[in-house]
Design a protein around this nucleic acid. Structure first.
Lengths: 238, 238
DNA sequence: TCTTGTCTTGCGGGAATCCGCAAATTTTGC
DNA sequence: GCAAAATTTGCGGATTCCCGCAAGACAAGA
């Protein structure tokens, strides 16, 4: 059994290496890669079916890397090991998990014991192991109260990239007014309307404020923006 | 001699602890804090004059913590030790360094040797030690070509927070048109005008696109946004 | 003093936004 | 198969943004 570790921080990498050795005696080979791109190459060459992957890496982040790995071998078991549980990350991972694939998502702040359990659970028992806190974010993002639907989230990304309503309408094949409707839903869910009494009204540019709030709440993050920008550019130059 | 380490990652914290022990035999006490807030408290209680500080921590980030520490004792020597050299961080640090204070800024990816040199340089020799790469960012942010002036940067933050032109004008005590002028400078420097030929014109909402570009280039980051938001709220409720 | 350059401000208009209203269309539930 | 609910779309307008143009304000320098 082979395990591939994709992690850019040397300290965390060697810690993970130790943890894998300790938790998985049946593992005979541990490979390492120091960024997403190297990880893809390694996974392809070594045919490793078990991957521990950091999200947030320079060069190429974990979500991108996981997506190409899964595209080539959808039965690869991937355990995401991340510092943060930003809704943007959770959503990003959920978007790329293939049908029926087994994966895990644990935070770097979890105990050695729980990391061990996750390693065995995902790699040996083929269970999906999601950290408690991550699970909470997942739930929240589905709740209709504050949670954004996929449609709303996509609009949010387009807006955040700086596209005009017209451009979004064209991209999403919708009428101008529909895009604006979606935007209004966003404004309500993100609660960007300045309540009267809190200074004069009209303090906020709603479009910009919505993005700011999404960033502050980690519904969006830099990684999601970069992903969107790449997609935008590739769609442009088709 | 006392050294305070403020770092939320346990692995990095113990690594730093070792590095300090090895580089500074004249140091008899090493204290640790696991987030910015605890760091402030520790610094106050222990009167440590030498601090190694991570930027990007939850609870309270390094820039905030450093600012309050320096406000209480401006002669404290602080070595910033960070994963990234985002222009937003570099700018954030530069904004809070007191007159004549000595500090350093090294990346976590530097070698043990250079970390050691930085520790001795800042704490013993009272030199300012700035990593090569960080220095590069500093220079670039000053170059008039793409670099934003402080005035432009402040407008950028206000826009990113979602304020309207009118609100910014009021906040900054400028006329509406002056704010819009500053915005136009921003648009030019961030190069948000879609060149003709690249699809139909009017793809971009300039205001939003400027912020998106700033985020993608790391001129802005989530930390800077949070700082801005806090200032905004405190200014509101005065 | 006069010039030159930078910064600020006002005016005006074209374009984009935000959004209420209502009809048309699709989806959902039974 | 049909009615209720949700979504999409068009229209019109108030507001805001974006920006060219030009007139003051201010500082530096010859």
């Amino acid at each position: 059994m082979k395990v591939l570790i994709v992690e850019d921080d040397p300290l965390h990498r060697s810690y993970l290496h130790e943890a894998v050795r300790a938790a998985l005696p049946e593992c005979d080979t541990v490979l390492e890669a120091e960024n997403g791109h190297a990880g893809e190459v390694q996974a392809r060459q070594s045919r490793a079916e078990h991957v521990v992957m950091d999200l947030q890496m320079s060069e190429r982040n974990g979500i991108e890397a996981a997506r190409t790995i899964w595209r080539e071998r959808p039965d690869t078991k991937i355990l995401f090991w991340s510092n943060y549980s930003d809704e943007a990350y959770v959503r990003g991972v959920a978007r790329i998990v293939p049908e029926g694939a087994t994966y895990g998502y644990v935070l770097k702040s979890t105990s050695d014991e729980r990391l061990k359990l996750a390693l065995r659970g995902v790699f040996i028992e083929s269970q999906c192991v999601i950290d408690r806190e991550v699970r909470g974010i997942q739930q929240k993002s589905l709740g209709t109260a504050h949670g954004l639907s996929d449609a709303e989230y996509e609009i949010l990304v387009d807006v955040a990239l700086g596209l005009t309503d017209k451009a979004i309408a064209q991209r999403k094949k919708l009428s101008l007014r529909s895009v604006q409707n979606r935007l209004q839903q966003l404004y309500e869910k993100l609660d960007v309307y300045d309540e009267p009494g809190n200074g004069p009204e009209g303090w906020y540019n709603l479009r910009m404020r919505a993005v700011a709030v999404a960033l502050l709440r980690k519904v969006l993050n830099a990684s999601a923006l970069e992903r969107g920008e790449r997609e935008l550019r590739s769609a442009r130059g088709n």
